[in-house]
Amino acid sequence: MRDFFRSLKIQLRVIYALMMREIITRYGRENIGFLWLFVEPIILIVGVTFIWSYIVHREAHGFPVATFIYTGWISNKLWLTTSSRVMAGLQANLPLLYHRNIKPIDIFLSRILLEITAMTGVFMLLGFVFVMSHVIEPPHSYFHIVLGWYLMCWLALGFSFFVASLNTLTNDIVQKVWGPVSLGLFIGSGTFFLVEWLPPEIRPYALLLPSVHNLEMIRYGFFGNQMHPYYDISYSTSFNLFLTFIGLVMFRLATEKVRVE
């Protein structure tokens, strides 16, 4: 038991060190530093929302566009960028395994944690600013937002392990097709649609992706009865459980393959 806590302490220390390292590497120490983390999504959301609201049309299907884009964009970016960061991270940090305390799982977890923390921060901060400035309406149900977001974070974790391990096992084939695949998933996950807009016969197919369920939950949290949400918490949870399990098994196989120079 004492050994367990000692190992846990070391692992937390290592993950913290890796996160700090990643922050400095990615955003540098000059000018606004890690605040860059917030800049990219803010520019995208403000830009896209602006185009949709003022140039295309002010309101789509009777919904406030800003809320719609804000929820869809960040929620789906959360799990997709996390996965791509983790996928790129293993190869880039391979030499660090020279330090025996640093294990591949620490590299994975540090990136996942950093990305989830950053995106959650962006989501909350932007939400706060948007509500305060009346760009979007205050949420109708925090419960649905938190639950949907939580399931999305879990999906980010499971999917990262799955995709990054698969990439290692297939000698970087996943990375080569990642562009179109992630774009497909981004669109297919409901970034630009509500399930109720789809023809009834197509809805079951759209609902195969757990991210669609999660996003419906998050959006319902904002819109309330302005929309009819389609989600199944047990489906999303089971999917996450299964994906995490498969991801960890594949991770195990993938770590056998990585070799330090």
Partner: peptide
Amino acid sequence: AFQGGFQGSLTGFDNLRFICRVYG
């Protein structure tokens, strides 16, 4: 004297902090 763990964009100081954090 292993040199592989250096990240080009990190300074010597950053690398020191990283190593110290890893080893507590």
